[in-house]
């Protein structure tokens, strides 16, 4: 219905094709692990980037883990928030619905991913994250302050033009979904394995959650 992936799925029940991150957190009643955080970031930015290229949806902030949907095949998409339900007509201009910048979407995604890592912890407790993941989230959540600019639409233009200097400075400014994906890929021993690896992590997250749900249902 959202145009962002396969048909919407309901709550965990055994035959669904997608689970929300919120459902996963509630079912396990514990935070996601670091590898899952890297994977959800990478996969979600991948789908957002693809959707942006197709211009199939307005940019929306991520308001809750309920919006982040992990699909059976390992894809991760962003569903509309309750208040954003219903696509605007194709001809609707900026006045037709609230748009936001790519950096704002990334910022909101970073915040929600952090909250998923922090799930269940008390207010006076803080999870010790590995420095690279903390740095990723820190930069995602502070992107707008990074350099005060909100460059948009340059990602296709600079495709393939990065050099080592770009690689070195990338951590200082996350401005696009692609920047996030590059950082996530750099976290792996072999960057080229990022698409397969992160898809497999999300596929496993879905499968294990469904397995747990089935088990708990049987116990009940």
């Amino acid at each position: 219905a959202s145009g962002e992936g396969p048909p919407e799925a309901g709550a965990a029940g055994g035959t669904e094709d997608a689970l929300s991150l919120e459902e996963i957190l509630r079912l396990y009643n514990q935070p996601i692990n670091e590898e899952q955080a890297w994977a959800v970031c990478y996969q979600c930015c991948g789908s957002l980037r693809a959707a942006a290229a197709r211009r199939r949806q307005p940019r929306r902030r991520v308001r809750s883990a309920e919006q982040i949907r992990i699909w059976r095949d390992g894809a991760v998409t962003l569903a509309p928030a309750a208040g954003d339900e219903g696509e605007p007509p194709p001809t609707a201009g900026k006045l037709g619905y609230s748009q936001c910048t790519e950096t704002e979407v990334i910022e909101s995604l970073g915040i929600i991913i952090y909250k998923a890592l922090d799930y269940g912890l008390k207010e006076n407790e803080e999870r010790e994250l590995s420095p690279p993941l903390e740095q990723l989230i820190d930069h995602m959540a502070n992107t707008i302050e990074a350099d005060g600019s909100n460059d948009e639409g340059y990602e296709a233009a600079d495709e393939g033009l990065e050099d080592e200097e770009d690689e070195k400075r990338k951590i200082s400014a996350i401005r696009s979904y692609r920047d996030v994906m590059k950082l996530c890929a750099a976290h792996l021993p072999t960057e080229s394995e990022a698409p397969n690896h992160y898809q497999a992590v999300c596929r496993a997250l879905f499968a294990e959650t469904m397995e747990l749900h089935t088990f708990l249902t049987k116990i009940k």
Partner: peptide, 24 residues
């Protein structure tokens, strides 16, 4: 299954949790 352990420390005023909280 598939879940790793993690360390918990006291929340720090300059830590990422505090920074994220300020944003929300």
């Amino acid at each position: 299954k598939g879940k790793s352990l993690y360390k918990i420390k006291p929340r720090h005023d300059s830590g990422i949790k505090a920074k994220i909280s300020m944003k929300t």
